[in-house]
């Protein structure tokens, strides 16, 4: 049960942080989303994000900074085996599930539904 509680609290706090940025600056929601993906990649690069993933599970994997971190981790994993060239391959492999499912389901829903307004 505690894995749920940790995921709830860590994920929730990350959203609170994003909400504070939205409310206290002039940035729009789209800007905040971009900012947090970049922050995720930077935190990943500094070795800070992966420990959070291991501690909070979905609490750190579901929010968007996880995307930036995952791309970074994917690159570095590939670099270990393939060298510098992996900068061009590892990232999308790591993000494949998220991007492919978003395109697929996004396209499917757009094709099947009509906007409500």
């Amino acid at each position: 049960m505690s894995s749920y509680a940790v995921a709830f609290v860590v994920g929730g706090l990350m959203c609170v942080l994003a909400q504070l940025v939205l409310d206290l600056t002039r940035l729009t929601a789209a800007h905040v989303m971009v900012l947090f993906v970049v922050l995720g990649a930077v935190a990943g690069g500094l070795g800070l994000y992966q420990p959070l993933v291991e501690f909070a599970g979905a609490g750190a994997m579901v929010p968007l900074p996880s995307f930036g971190n995952a791309v970074f981790q994917g690159i570095m994993e590939d670099v270990d085996t393939r060298g510098f060239i992996a900068v061009f391959t590892g990232g999308l492999t790591a993000a494949a599930w998220g991007i492919t499912s978003a395109i697929l389901f996004g396209w499917l829903v757009a094709a099947l539904f009509n906007p409500k307004g």
Binding site: V38, A41, G45, F72, V79
Partner: peptide, 28 residues
């Protein structure tokens, strides 16, 4: 933009680490 900047930032961080000779995923 989310995908673009996520990718750019991650590649930048990876390149910096490689240049600095810090390979490995940087995790625990």
């Amino acid at each position: 933009p989310v995908v673009v900047y996520g990718m750019v930032a991650a590649v930048a961080m990876a390149t910096i680490r490689i240049v600095l000779g810090l390979t490995g995923t940087g995790g625990a």
